[in-house]
Design a protein around this nucleic acid. Structure first.
Length: 738
DNA sequence: TAGAATGTCGTTTTT
DNA sequence: CGACATTCTA
């Protein structure tokens, strides 16, 4: 960052000649604030600072017509994307059981990450998705154009295409962005790399910051090769190695270094620091995931109260970093019960919530009535008595007339194709949409020819709207019945959803019109409202990239979870090494205190499963780690309490009259617990693992496969939940005394 | 058509 | 377990 400021200060570079690119919005914000805090006198803001995606979106709006789009295209999220793909599969008579839509979405994303348009997909990939991948990809792109929409991948891909096919446009931006700065370069994929290389092609004033040991996005097409090839791409590049670390204590640094040493493919570097020694990295094992959450909760309390032997910590200084987002739940549950304030970062985003997406769909339709996806989403939300049949009628009418769904609906209403209550409700909706759309503009002025219909081509202009976009948004939500829908809803979530809708409308204040707002929401907005004082952060290791915290907890270090079994199965050693880099990233997020933990037992899909401690734990340097549990047994003392708790819980869930309201997206109504679930057993066994020279023993339980140094006890359940020992290769309890 | 019951399957990681 | 699809019922 200082580098940017330096350019501005000493080389007469103007702030708006700089293009600064990050991967995440958080990093962009961070850059912005750092820039403001810099010792240099930056007078004007760096205007072109943002993520690859947000900058690409801005550029693409200027040149949309070059790729057959209109400037007001909508940006689809992965939900919309999936819906379109499902529709395509249906049209093509493809069984999405055997060939899931998700898979195709992944393949398409992958191609887009590699900057491959349908015509450029290499023949080697022709077999993808049952030989139909490329064909469907082409259809998908066509459909997106029809909808005047792009997905995330398109934002970059379209810009690369434009740069490649329109040298004049490219040159304009090469002149414009005379200096380019890229953060986290090790995570660029091919599309991003081309994007950068094209833009920097003329002047080659490009500065990239990155660390090959922190490359954790291989699965998203990131190419560490980009960073290794940098000097070749930009001959004469000056490489600066930064090996002094200003963040972590020596113990933490040593732990991280020792783990990452296990990787074979790396450039290799030795980090050092002149920070005071601090405390060792701490390691603790637990009986199960709930105990782990409980223990961490207590630790945080103690840290906050200053009774933990380290300086008193503010909740903002503490983070819990998990491998997979499902791990977050145990912590949320626990922290809610003990009233510990927390925030989930990078969890479900604000705009991904059902009510926000519904509201946005209404806004989208108001702004652009041809947005069929938005129409499909809200025709029957709130319930208007328009079921499958009615919706099919609308679809058919639209198709017959070659018009959008809204138009189709209007025709269907006029021709009386939909009878009864549904018909009346649809008429209301269609009329409402027309009315609201008209409210986005003021009165029509400068009519040159009365005979010209306002179809978008007529030379008409409008005065300023009479209603502000904020009022309009409120009107749309109220008149459509959407607000009432949630007011009448009795589920416990309803008040929160109304609250969110209010927040959504409030946010509009920061924008000039609905359009600008829609763009912001789809690209930037997250659920961080940062209100109500300091909070513990809970996030994935991936989301923690680039961040730092005085105190970090790293739970769930079990083989299979971390390193992730899937990563190892799918990518072998490469996968394992990426997992190890993730471990490295995790440890190095900590400035002063780092606590690693694991649990012997965890519930997976409602079944108890157990796991060995992560192999990365074996790679921790003994001298820099303090093991909190004595080398006897991990979590042993908790066992009986654990089983009692769970048995009690199972009784509640399995009691015959027990019912529960469901109130999730799309689903409604009551559901009963199923017999075969919530099984509990009390089988225990012991396994050992090593840390440096020392051997530790760990007790497992709860059934499933119980591992003992290669030998095992297997337990199975029948439908009624009766336990049965399938195989017992070793007598568990007798082997290790405890 | 809406709601209720039953069936099936999945947990990496994200802009 | 819980999300989602499918099938059954009023």
């Amino acid at each position: 960052m200082a580098r940017v400021a330096h350019l501005i200060e000493h080389h007469g570079v103007r702030a708006n000649e700089i293009l600064a690119v990050t991967f995440t919005n958080k990093a962009a914000q961070e850059m912005q604030t750092r820039l403001e805090k810099t010792p240099y006198s930056v007078k004007e803001p760096v205007r072109w600072l943002g993520t690859f995606h947000s900058i690409s979106a801005k550029l693409l709006r200027r040149h949309a017509e070059l790729v057959d789009l209109k400037a007001n295209f909508t940006i689809l999220d992965s939900d919309d994307q999936l819906r379109i793909i499902k529709q395509l599969l249906k049209v093509n008579n493809i069984d999405d059981k055997r060939w899931p839509a998700r898979m195709l979405a992944g393949i398409i994303d992958d191609w887009k990450n590699r900057a491959l348009t349908p015509d450029k997909v290499p023949t080697a990939d022709a077999g993808a998705y049952n030989n139909k991948g490329v064909e469907l990809y082409a259809q998908y792109q066509t459909r997106l154009r029809e909808l005047n929409a792009v997905d995330f991948g398109d934002l970059l891909l379209h810009m690369v295409t434009i740069f490649q096919t329109h040298p004049d446009v490219l040159e304009q931006y090469q002149r414009w962005f005379r200096y380019i700065l890229v953060d986290e370069y090790q995570d660029t994929n091919i599309a991003q790399y081309l994007w950068l290389r094209l833009l920097a092609g003329g002047h080659k004033n490009i500065c990239c910051v990155g660390d090959d040991d922190q490359s954790i996005y291989g699965w998203r097409g990131a190419e560490v090769g980009n960073i290794l090839r940098f000097e070749k791409d930009f001959p004469g590049a000056h490489v600066v190695r930064l090996e002094q670390n200003y963040r972590s204590t020596p113990h933490i640094l040593a732990a991280a270094s020792n783990v990452i040493r296990g990787n074979e493919s790396r450039l290799g570097k030795e980090l050092w620091t002149d920070k005071p020694e601090g405390e060792k990295v701490r390691l603790i094992g637990h009986w199960d995931g709930e105990e782990e959450a409980r223990w961490i909760g207590e630790e945080i309390d103690a840290m906050q109260g200053g009774t933990r032997g380290v300086r008193p910590m503010n909740l903002d200084e503490i983070a819990i970093l998990v491998r997979a987002s499902h791990q977050m739940r145990a912590f949320e549950d626990r922290f809610l019960t003990i009233g510990l304030p927390y925030k989930v970062i990078g969890g479900p985003r604000f705009y991904e919530r059902m009510e926000i997406r519904d509201a946005m769909a209404y806004f989208r339709l108001v702004v652009s009535p041809e947005d069929d996806l938005a129409f499909e989403r809200i025709v029957n939300t709130p319930k208007r008595g328009l079921g499958d049949k009615a919706q099919q009628t609308i679809q058919r009418t639209a198709r017959e007339h070659g018009v959008s769904l809204v138009q189709g609906a209007r025709i269907a209403v006029e021709q009386g194709l939909i009878k009864g209550k549904g018909g009346a409700a649809l008429r209301d909706l269609v009329e409402g949409l027309a009315r609201w759309n008209a409210m986005t503009r003021g009165p029509r002025i400068e009519i040159e020819d009365d005979s010209v219909i306002d179809d978008g081509t007529a030379p008409v202009r409008y005065g300023p709207p009479e209603v502000s976009h904020i009022e309009l948004a409120q009107i749309v939500l109220d008149e459509s019945g959407y607000t009432a829908h949630w007011q009448n809803d009795k589920t416990p979530e309803a008040p929160g959803r109304l609250e969110n809708l209010k927040e959504l409308v409030n946010q509009l204040d920061n924008f000039e019109n609905l359009q600008g707002f829609l763009e912001h929401v789809s690209l930037v907005m997250d659920n961080e409202q940062d209100s109500g004082g300091p909070k513990v952060s809970i996030m994935t290791l991936h989301a923690a990239k680039g961040l730092e915290f005085p105190a970090v907890f790293l739970p769930g270090w079990e083989d299979g979870l971390f390193p992730s079994q899937r990563s190892m199965d799918e990518s072998g050693l490469k996968g394992l090494e990426e997992e190890r880099r993730l471990a490295y990233v995790g440890i190095t997020r900590a400035e002063e205190v780092c606590t690693i933990s694991f649990a012997a037992n965890r519930r997976v899909f409602g079944q108890w499963q157990n796991a060995m401690p992560s192999r990365f734990i074996d790679e921790l340097p003994e001298d820099h780690v303090e093991v909190l549990t004595p080398p006897g047994l991990y979590g042993g003392g908790q066992m009986s309490a654990g089983i009692e708790t769970r048995a009690a819980q199972a009784n509640v869930y399995n009691s015959p009259g027990w019912k529960r309201m469901q109130s999730r997206q799309g689903q409604y109504g009551m559901s009963q617990p199923r017999e075969s679930r919530n099984t509990v057993i009390d089988a225990t066994a012991v396994a050992s693992f090593t840390l440096g020279e020392r051997v530790f023993h760990q007790k497992f339980g709860y059934g499933g496969v119980v591992g003992i140094e290669g030998d095992k006890v297997e337990v199975e359940f029948d439908k009624a939940g009766t336990k049965k020992v399938v195989a017992q290769y070793l007598s568990a309890k007798d082997d290790v005394p405890f």
